[in-house]
Design a protein around this nucleic acid. Structure first.
Length: 258
DNA sequence: CTAGATGTTAAGGT
DNA sequence: CACCTTAACATCTA
């Protein structure tokens, strides 16, 4: 969703200047180098791999952007006063501007010769939406940690975040703490299908949590909530250091055996 | 006021 | 190596 938003606004525009407001978000590149390499170049393509974004320039380097937890990109036709948490500005020659804001600064902006080089460097797994059933299953079954931790591990499958992992496991009726390696083939297949369904749907609704179908857990993330299938059994637990919501009825280990 | 949480990821320990 | 925990960060809420 961010990728298509950017594609519509920055492809074809030429970078006039880059203003780094906070060096803390730069990933292993000095602001001078970023500016030297990218200013004056036209953005010709916007790509995505998992949660990572790439702005490819004509005959030059590629800018990498990760939104982290609170990052956001806003395109403005004219230069307005930047927001409180703006960290980096890209001004284009036609007077428009792309603003990168990130309150908690878990995001990162960097530079790479190519998307492929960056993916290799970070050891990122194939993107969750490009991986077929067979490969998904091979990758998942290899690990012995909790299935939720596996889904969140960008080196096993790229592009799934905390909320989406919960949603995927709810839709698949699998308990988040189940050991990945001991899942049945059928369960893994359900998880693979749910991953595609949930991510595609989320991209379509632009991650607006009020818009997914009412059968989605994402709409109301709290223990007070009723599970979308009517059970009053929402539970919370910590898996792999991340808060996890699930329905104790739908996703009980007993249900998995059916 | 402090404690605890939060769309993430890298680094350090076992 | 596989896995787990924690720190970095800046707010907001109980």
């Amino acid at each position: 969703m961010v990728r298509s938003y950017l594609e519509g606004h920055v492809v074809g525009r030429t970078i006039q200047s880059i203003t780094v407001l906070d060096d803390g978000i730069l990933e292993k590149v000095a602001r001078e180098r970023l500016r030297e390499a990218l200013e004056g170049r036209e953005i010709v393509r916007v790509a995505r791999h998992g949660k990572q974004l790439f702005l490819l320039t004509q005959g030059g380097m590629t800018m990498t952007i990760h939104l982290g937890m609170t990052g956001d990109l806003d395109f403005h036709k004219i230069k307005e006063k930047e927001s409180r948490f703006a960290r980096l500005l890209i001004d284009f020659e036609d007077g428009s501007r792309l603003e990168y804001e990130d309150m908690r600064k878990f995001g990162a902006v960097g530079m790479t010769p190519s998307k492929e080089a960056f993916v290799a460097l970070k050891k990122l797994a194939p993107d969750a939406l490009s991986i077929d059933r067979k490969e998904f299953s091979t990758r998942v079954l290899k690990h012995h940690k909790a299935i939720k931790s596996v889904l969140l591990d960008q080196r096993i499958v790229a592009g799934i975040g905390n909320l989406y992992a919960d949603e995927i496991l709810f839709q698949s009726k699998v308990h988040p703490a189940s050991g990945a390696a001991s899942l049945t083939d059928e369960e893994v297949e359900r998880i693979h299908l749910a991953t595609r369904k949930v991510l595609k749907r989320s991209i379509r609704v632009k991650t607006d949590f009020s818009k997914p179908p009412t059968s989605y857990l994402l709409r109301d993330r709290s223990v007070e909530a009723k599970c979308p299938r009517g059970h009053k059994a929402m539970r919370t637990m910590v898996v792999g250091g991340r808060t996890t919501y699930f329905c104790a009825v739908c996703q009980s280990p007993a249900m998995e055996i059916e």
